[in-house]
Design a protein around this nucleic acid. Structure first.
Lengths: 339, 339
DNA sequence: TTGTAAGCGTTATCAA
DNA sequence: TTGATAACGCTTACAA
């Protein structure tokens, strides 16, 4: 009955005409302002009659606000497929933005073509800010954002070049140190690490924490260096370690996925966990509980990270300047069965 | 040197002034049209001087085209966290849209609040079309799309109500039948299924294919029904099956993640795979190769599904009417070690 | 409380 | 080939 004509969409103008009011008044019922009860009623009737839906492009043009925030995932091929946290971070960010009535839109940057297009998109007024995840030190997107002075927040350490962009993350060094110390405390002596993503701050920092905790026990030979935080890398890294040091009795895997892979390699080598070798991971992702044995690991508060990043943006949109230096969220150890 | 003033952004007007040309000419160099070499040079110089970046909102308002397509993920909490295919589908869609110079923006619908906001977003002119994944039969978003007659494409079976929206998917019934037949062919006789998501077409269809393939061998008692396509459900479903029929010798898991869980439960029950029990999965996701033994499964061409969906949108944007009834992509069997 | 009118940054039509 | 000028749909002073 009240189905609108499908093709041409009703505008404020049409509503005004139908309701016998002026455009200004229509806009006022839309945005809140002085308007009489009768006027409001007539206009609302006209709106639902004609199936009015406001045109965001026009509104954004006028208001210079789109009520949308981008969630930019750099190199998602490895991200979405391997990182079980990215989904939770997104969901956390979305929830926080949703509460503030902002639309989160995620953009994927996979190719040079994408980079350029996303840069245009970010500068074009379709979004009011951007959450950037997994930035490498000199990503072109970052230039664009800082040139534009678009409100932004990084997830993870910010690239060196721009200290003006706030970030939210965890203390990778401290967490890695703590989980490694657990290995030491429980009596392990020949402790190795499967380090990953050494071109990213998270990777570098986890290795630093490991080295730190071990002190004199640290042995360069016992660090296997793999490219990604994924299962396959874990299998490979562990095989590598076993070959280099058959007497290894403890392993810190740079992520739970890697730890799961390590478990597989250990099983295939006939080592028991935690009997022969203690294994610890990082993330407390779904991997941790689907392993056998379940992983002792570092809990990463992914959802909170997402919502903090969102808050960082929202605060800037309100005109507040967030404290520089970023925000580090706590990362409790989770003790399970693998060490 | 050529750093633009950070706050106020240059407009076509400014460029025109700086280059001593009219706005029309500037627009012409932007969009292609007759313009002399000198004029072009002057204008391009002015643009890079002032750091010009076009305003999308204004362009969208005028052109009625945003060059953006939404990728709408319904109930992502289970999706992103459990479904290893969703990432590949997104990436496939993005790649195809990217080639056509369209920006893919993914939207997440988790709450009623999200539903409403996303509906507004879709209707507001910020996107030219929408790819919808994992729609349940009567999702409000679908109403909105069809009321708006927004160019759209579904991933998976379309909900009954609207036959005008094209879709891309796979033949779940046929694939399930084929993989089940493999179990029969290899000599299994007491074959069970861990069925999931029976409120979704994919879930229903996979069960139908299973029943179909088994014919007289089918036994209602040997179907365990779990809510989601995830690992935990697989563990539970398999335990359930083992309890109901200790002599079970074949299992069709509705997804690879479920199959991985089933493997775990079988290990814990002391059954060998494929010796005592043959197990097959569905998806050919990363799960399939990280299991021990690796899974025999149905390959789902996730990337192609994404890019087909994108094509479906692009075609509509060109004014073509895609053939109704949708498009089914082939799903070869992948024989590995689990059955 | 309501109407009028200007303008947000583009593109497009039409003359020149 | 180029320059005015009128939209696109909306918000917002300012006036009434």
């Amino acid at each position: 009955m009240s189905r609108p004509q499908p093709q041409k969409r009703a505008t404020v103008h049409d509503i005004a005409a139908a309701a016998g009011m002026s455009r200004g008044t229509v806009s006022r019922v839309l945005n809140g302002g002085y308007v009489s009860a009768e006027a409001r009623a007539a206009i609302e009737a006209a709106m639902s009659d004609l199936g009015y839906v406001p045109n965001n492009a026009a509104r954004a043009l006028k208001m210079r606000r789109s009520q949308a925030v981008a969630f930019v995932a750099l190199e998602p091929h490895s991200l979405f497929l391997d990182d079980p946290n990215i989904g939770s971070i997104m969901l956390g960010a979305n929830a926080a933005l949703s509460l503030a009535d902002h639309q989160m839109v995620s953009l994927v940057v996979e190719s040079a073509r994408d980079t350029e297009r996303v840069a245009r998109y970010l500068s074009g007024g379709f979004v009011d800010g951007a959450i950037v995840v997994s930035a490498r030190t000199k990503d072109p997107i970052i230039r664009v954002i800082s040139d534009l002075s678009l409100p932004a927040a990084f997830v993870g350490h910010p690239p060196d070049l721009d200290q003006t962009i706030p970030f939210v993350g965890i203390d990778n060094v401290g967490s890695a140190r703590a989980i490694t110390e657990h290995l030491v405390t429980t009596g392990r002596r020949r402790i190795g690490m499967i380090a990953a993503a050494l071109d990213r701050d998270s990777g570098i920092d986890r290795l630093a924490g490991f080295r730190d905790a071990l002190g004199p026990l640290f042995d360069d030979e016992l660090v296997s260096d793999v490219p990604h935080y994924d299962y396959g890398s874990g299998v490979k890294g562990m095989r590598d370690l076993l070959e280099r040091e058959p007497a290894i009795d403890g392993v810190f895997a740079a992520s739970d996925a890697i730890a799961a892979g390590a478990l597989e390699a250990l099983r295939e080598a006939g080592r028991s966990v935690p009997g022969d070798v203690g294994v610890v991971g990082f993330d407390d992702s779904t991997w941790a509980v689907r392993c056998q044995p379940q992983l002792t690991t570092v809990h990463q508060p992914a959802k909170e990270i997402g919502s903090c990043a969102a808050q960082l943006i929202l605060r800037q949109l309100r005109g507040e300047h967030p404290d520089p230096g970023g925000q580090l969220l706590p990362t409790p150890l989770v003790l399970r069965d693998s060490a």
